[in-house]
């Protein structure tokens, strides 16, 4: 009996396809039975994590970015610090009692990450804020920003936390893990330096 080779080949291919399709359906059934719950759980975890990241960014993003910028004077570096701070929070799940502690934790980590970048000379050069103030022709703000920038880091950080974030010297001491007397002394010296820099500009030394 003669068997057409092409017909045999065609039947083999059809059988192969049928077997593969059946196997795929079984795998799909098994996936829904076994793996789907685990994947759903992982997806829920990821969704919870995303919601947490969005909440942190909405509630504390500006504060973290501004503190990082006060240290680094560069938007890309400040953005990196903001991202790394949130990442540390999400990965380490710190023990915190209330939202104030949460913000303090984030600012402490952002400060440490910023200081690490300064210590390892990993700071870019461009100061977008300086350019922005110049473009707006806000000379008064440019003077103040230049003066604050010229302060040593140890004065800048306490000045930012005290005058911008509104923390007390005791709270800053806890946040930066230093004595309150050190915070007070750095605030005083920072103010004195600012005063001497800005004394030639009328009106800017008010309140110093």
């Amino acid at each position: 009996m003669y068997i057409c080779p092409s017909s045999t080949f065609s039947h083999t291919v059809t059988l192969q396809r049928w077997v593969i399709q059946a196997a795929a359906r079984i795998r799909l059934l098994l996936f829904h039975a076994f793996a789907q719950p685990a994947f759903d759980e992982a997806r829920e975890d990821t969704a919870a994590l995303s919601r947490q990241a969005e909440r942190l960014l909405s509630q504390h993003g500006d504060s973290i970015l501004r503190l990082a910028y006060a240290y680094l004077h560069n938007m890309s570096d400040a953005e990196d610090v903001l991202q790394d701070t949130l990442l540390q929070f999400l990965k380490t799940a710190p023990v915190l009692e209330n939202p104030d502690h949460e913000k303090a934790w984030l600012l402490r980590v952002a400060g440490n990450l910023s200081k690490n970048r300064i210590a390892y000379n990993r700071v870019r050069g461009a100061d977008e804020l300086e350019e922005s103030l110049a473009a707006e022709q806000r000379e008064d703000l440019s003077y103040v920003w230049d003066a604050v920038k010229s302060l040593p880091v140890k004065y800048r950080e306490v000045i930012h936390l005290f005058y911008y974030e509104g923390y007390s010297t005791g709270q800053i001491a806890q946040l930066l893990r230093m004595n309150e007397s050190t915070v007070r002394s750095r605030l005083r010296r920072g103010r004195e330096q600012l005063k001497s820099i800005l004394q030639e500009v009328p009106g800017l030394v008010d309140g110093l």
């Binding site: 500006d62 938007m75 703000l141 103040v144 911008y164 030394v205």
Partner: peptide, 15 residues
Amino acid sequence: MWTAYRDIMEHVSVT
């Protein structure tokens, strides 16, 4: 002075 500093910082925000 501190009002000016706050004005400066308002320029820095998460876009």
